[in-house]
């Protein structure tokens, strides 16, 4: 049987137009909400158009009308069957204080894995410098780190004028953008089943360990800590969290022991990845400011104890924030009860 296409189109056209106008409203105005009656009508129109599509596919095979109906059904399908919550307003403070630390804690084991990989890299870098100082140019291909640490320290401590004068702002934003790019790449390399992320974390660890060993062996511990801690207390955790995000992505791709499909696993972690990366960007903005405006100044301009104390306070506050912020009282009570049971 072939349906009378003209009659069919003439009788159904108004329903399609109704559905199309409702879809236009929903798509163009994210704040638009349907009332219960409108919602029922929308559902009715969706089902009617779906039935029309089925009819036309079976009994007419007229491609243009079918494509038109397919596009309507596809758009309406997305609206009807979507169950994930869509936030209607931005709440940056709530997100920062609650969502970000909660997400971080939800994947804490992955964060420790990220820390572990970096530590292994650091030990490797430190060992390489300790046993073969000639490897410095290979491990740290940065010109300002090639010289003797003691010479650098004495040169920097002799400098009375502000060498970053007039370029502090540019230096700061360059650091922020560069570090953010590295973090994004660390996350994105999670698509290599996490191998790329592991390499990035390991390599970061190698450089960090090599620099630390170089300065420690030269007896410049105080300078090293005063130089790295103020910005490193935010920058290093930021890269570690980016690594955490990359490893979560890699884990979702591999899907150990789970029965969910790949699509579902990726869907489950997508919001967490975005949360972690936005948090990383926030941490790196602060680190960029500190590195340009504080870290590059040493004694006698800023005493080492002041820089080290500042860095230690920052690190403590960050640790406290990530560990405690956004914790619900119920969670605390539950945790307390568990501890009592254990005791």
């Amino acid at each position: 049987m072939i349906i009378d296409l003209q009659k069919f189109v003439a009788s159904e056209r108004r329903h399609w137009a109704d559905l199309e106008s409702l879809l236009d409203k929903l798509e163009n105005d994210p704040g638009f909400k349907l009332s219960l009656d409108q919602l029922k009508h929308f559902h009715y129109l969706y089902e009617r158009t779906s039935a029309d599509l089925a009819k036309i596919t079976t009994f007419a095979s007229e491609p243009q009308t079918r494509r038109y109906l397919e596009s309507l059904v596809a758009r309406a399908y997305g609206e009807i069957h979507e169950t994930r919550e869509t936030p209607h307003r931005l709440a940056p403070v709530h997100w920062f204080v609650n969502t970000f630390p909660q997400t971080f804690r939800r994947h804490l084991r992955v964060f420790w894995l990220s820390v572990g990989i970096t530590i292994v890299g650091s030990l490797f870098g430190a060992g390489a410098i300790a046993f073969d100082p000639g490897a410095k140019s290979v491990i740290m291909p940065f010109s300002h780190l090639q010289g003797d640490p003691s010479e650098r320290v004495s040169r920097e401590e002799r400098t009375a004028d502000d060498r970053l004068s007039g370029v502090k702002g540019t230096f700061s934003t360059t650091l922020m953008t560069h570090n953010t790019q590295v973090s994004i790449l660390t996350l994105a390399l999670g698509m290599t089943w996490g191998i790329g992320t592991i390499i990035m974390l390991f390599y970061n660890g190698v450089i960090l360990g090599a620099v630390a060993a170089d300065y420690l062996l030269a007896g410049q511990t105080k300078f090293l800590v005063g130089w790295l801690l103020p910005h490193g207390s935010f920058e290093i955790p930021a890269i570690l969290i980016a690594g955490q995000a990359g490893l979560i992505l890699g884990g979702a791709l591999i899907g150990w022991g789970g029965r969910t499909s790949l699509g579902t696993r990726l869907r489950q972690v997508s919001r967490d990845l975005v949360t972690l990366m936005l948090g990383v960007a926030g941490l790196l903005i602060w680190a960029g400011f500190v590195e340009a405006f504080l870290s590059q100044y040493h004694e006698p301009i800023i005493p080492y104890w002041a820089k080290i104390s500042f860095g230690a306070v920052e690190l403590g506050l960050l640790a406290l924030f990530l560990a405690r912020s956004g914790r619900k009282p119920a969670q605390d009570a539950e945790l307390g009860m568990r501890n009592e049971e254990r005791n």
Partner: peptide, 23 residues
């Protein structure tokens, strides 16, 4: 750009596909 299951596109999906452009 559409959701692979034909559902509504989420903000997190848009961010991820754009960040992974780096790879």
């Amino acid at each position: 750009v559409m959701d692979a299951q034909g559902l509504r596109l989420q903000f997190s999906q848009i961010v991820i596909r754009n960040l992974l452009r780096f790879v």
